[in-house]
């Protein structure tokens, strides 16, 4: 009926809260760079993934952490979350196999987290929800085949939602964003 002390978040809660906030704003404003509390994909996995999830990763260091959070490690075809390198065609091939949900259940489209470098490389023009007019980003370390593969899987409202990280920074590219490769 009553609570006595004001609760204080522990380190894990604080990290997960800040990580999610970065992801949320990144997806809400595609193309903007949002600060993560720490670099790497571990904290993102910790904020999102648990025993209700099926995850794919090609990162041997991350796999045991995903398993420790309770996720079932599966092939891309069955994954709802993927932590994958998109630097090479093999990664793009995995990406292309991820579930994109259905018109009935768009929420079943996968969430993908991949490393990139911001501010150099391929110029992309973004339009869609979250963007007032258009936005432009430059990203490197991504296989050029990704953009066509993404377009093929994002048949709105079906699609795959993508987070690119660069150190402790994240950019969100939801399925609703139209990407023009410049």
């Amino acid at each position: 009926m009553t609570l006595h002390a004001t609760p204080v978040p522990d380190a894990a809660e604080t990290r997960a809260n800040a990580t999610f906030e970065a992801l949320m704003w990144a997806l809400s404003r595609p193309g903007t760079v949002q600060p993560l509390p720490e670099p790497g994909h571990g904290a993102i996995a910790e904020a999102l993934v648990d025993r209700e999830c099926r995850a794919f990763t090609d990162d041997p260091a991350l796999a045991p952490r995903l398993a420790a959070f309770g996720a079932a490690l599966v092939s891309p075809v069955h994954a709802d979350h993927a932590f994958v390198s998109l630097a090479r065609p093999a990664g793009v091939a995995s990406f292309a196999q991820l579930p994109a949900g259905s018109a009935l259940y768009p929420d079943e489209g996968a969430t993908v987290v991949a490393e990139a470098r911001f501010g150099t490389g391929q110029r992309l023009r973004l339009t869609g929800p979250g963007i007032e007019t258009t936005a432009e980003i430059t990203v490197d370390g991504i296989d050029p085949g990704l953009w066509a593969a993404r377009a093929a899987r994002c048949r709105y409202p079906e699609g795959i939602d993508l987070f690119l990280t660069c150190g402790a920074a994240v950019i969100g590219l939801p399925r609703s964003t139209r990407i023009e490769v410049l």
Partner: peptide, 22 residues
């Protein structure tokens, strides 16, 4: 903290991201 346990929050986070995406 925040009443909901970590697993409830994670589920909400996942769904909130999907809600933003569509």
């Amino acid at each position: 903290y925040g009443f909901l346990d970590a697993s409830a929050k994670r589920e909400l986070r996942r769904k909130m991201l999907k809600a933003i995406a569509v």
